[in-house]
Amino acid sequence: MVDWDDLVREHGATVFGIAWRILGHAQDAEDVSQEVFAQASRQSNGIPVVCWPGLLRRMTTCRAMNALRRRRITIPLDCTELTRVKDDPQAIAAGHELEARMRAALAKLAPREAEVFYLRYFEDLSYREIAETLGISATAASTALYQARSRLEKLLTQPAKRGVP
């Protein structure tokens, strides 16, 4: 079995970063990250892993998206939105709302669509890289992204027309 400490030391920041961007919540991101490492550690027992970064990225994206779909609406314990960066409550609420709407929309996508969308838009992966990461064809990745964007268009742009930032 792979050494836990080595695995976490080498890839902890990357895995946590992905989970953080998807979930926007430190404790949830830590949970997902630890689950990913635990699963990766178990799966690698006796089976050599060719590309740890790719495997971990895929596992983290999938698990974080699952967590996003499952979770109730919560806020972090420190609850510092109102004291962050700028003091204007409206500006803070607007930025916060955009993030919240994006996460809510991602949670409504089919799992594959959400994973492809994340890897494309947040990780800047090419279609070939997405295909390799998720073990699907480039055409399937392209189709999933198209479907994701079609659904996101309905979910995100219509409220925006009503004046929500």
Binding site: A13, F16, Q34, F122
Partner: peptide, 18 residues
């Protein structure tokens, strides 16, 4: 939306405590 979500860096984590 993506820029907003990317703009906030992940908080510091004590990976050693995992």
């Amino acid at each position: 939306a993506v820029d907003t979500m990317r703009a906030v860096p992940p908080p510091a984590v004590d990976f050693g405590a995992w």
